[in-house]
Amino acid sequence: MPTSEIAGSHDLALRHQFVNQEQQRDASSMGMWLFLVTEVMFFGGMFTAYLIYRHANPAAFMAGSLALSVEYGAFNTVVLIGSSLTMALAVRCAQLGQRKALVGWLIGTILLGATFLGVKAVEYHEKWENHHVPGPTFNFDTAKEESTKDHPEAQASSKSVEMYFSLYFAMTGMHALHMIIGIGLMSVLTWMSWRGTFGRDYFAPIEYAGLYWHFVDLVWIYLFPLLYLIGRRHTF
């Protein structure tokens, strides 16, 4: 085993099962990408359900889309894209060994993530008030709802709109859960960065947290048009 006294900081972070740094870096980055593959397939199950049910009942999906607030959705998209920028800059600072700036960008990412979740909470709360949360209290009369009563194409049974909202809550809920996990992860990393754990020789955790965060952003980049936008004009 290479010992730290002799090898210095160069081999500090080399784990015993690897031959050299290059092997370790390739292995860990491949591991992270494979993990993201599992995430793609995880959300893929819900996207499949969305595809099938949207085609089975386009009117209900139009009604559901119209009941969502594009303002909240667009604002959150902007917030999340901003957090991807701060995250990318955090990784850059980690690469360059800029400790304070790294901490700053991480905190910025956390704050933007929290803003997203805050808006999401307000949205969920409104849905709850309007009885748009699936379950015994769910009620959505497309002929009477403010958002749908003027859209003849968006007339559907309350039950079928409940399916739209089941998907809405499942998809955005799992997305929000991933954000919460990401914020938790990022908080630990901020603390570690502050203490100087990372430097030019060792910043893989920041890099992989970045990949995870960008992936969560990617999911939202699709969720936003699928849930908020494409049902608004047509029942196709």
Binding site: Y53, A56, A60, E162, A170
Partner: peptide, 14 residues
């Protein structure tokens, strides 16, 4: 647990 009826035939679930 939460009545999200993705597979509920009553909601058009398959």
């Amino acid at each position: 647990m939460f009545h999200l009826g993705i597979f509920d035939p009553a909601l058009g679930g398959d």
